[in-house]
Amino acid sequence: MTRLRIALIAHDSRKDAMVDWAFYNRETLADCTLWATSTTGTRVQKQVGLSVNMLRSGPLGGDAQIGAMIATSELDVVFFFWDQLTPQPHDVDIRTLLRLAVLYDVPIACNRRSADLLISSPLFNNLNYHHGPRSGHAEERPVGNA
């Protein structure tokens, strides 16, 4: 059975919001394969009771790991509650992750309201939609002056 593959990431000041959001959506998320940066994933696993595949902490390469998973079509959706007001030591990885999500046409929600809209969309659980052709996919764009 194919499941939706989701990444969960939250900066320190946004972790409570991520846990609250995951708790509210736990039934939907339980039917998905979840990946998360370590601290976020640990909190979601312990406080919400969901099974989460752990990656490294964001500053230790977790954001880069998720970016690589986007580039290799291993993720379908990203929920990234990030803090724009607090400087992050791994800002380059964050920007790369965001750029790759847009480049590879992977839906990404960066706050609670956009996450609510994304997860409540009728397209959210449609695997054909997520695994079908992506209009923004890098390999599908013309190269040069085409």
Rank of each mutant, 00 (worst) to 15 (best):
R141D: 09
H131G: 09
K15H: 04
A22F: 13
L97F: 02
V52G: 04
K15F: 03
G58K: 01
A64Q: 11
Q45N: 14
M54S: 04
H130K: 09
N25R: 12
L29R: 02
D31V: 02
G58Q: 01
F79H: 02
Q47K: 08
S38Q: 06
G61Y: 04
T86F: 01
A115H: 05
N126K: 15
D76Q: 09
L29N: 03
M1C: 09
W35K: 10
R141C: 07
G67H: 00
V44L: 08
N126P: 02
L50G: 10
I108T: 06
R134L: 07
M18L: 07
G61C: 07
P122T: 15
M54R: 12
G62K: 01
L55H: 00
A138E: 10
S57P: 06
A68E: 15
P59H: 01
D93I: 00
I6N: 04
D76T: 04
L100T: 01
A7H: 00
A101Y: 01
V19N: 08
S121R: 14
S57F: 04
P133C: 05
G67N: 00
T96H: 12
V52T: 12
Y24L: 09
V19R: 02
N126A: 15
L4V: 15
Q65P: 05
T39E: 06
D91E: 14
K46H: 08
D93C: 00
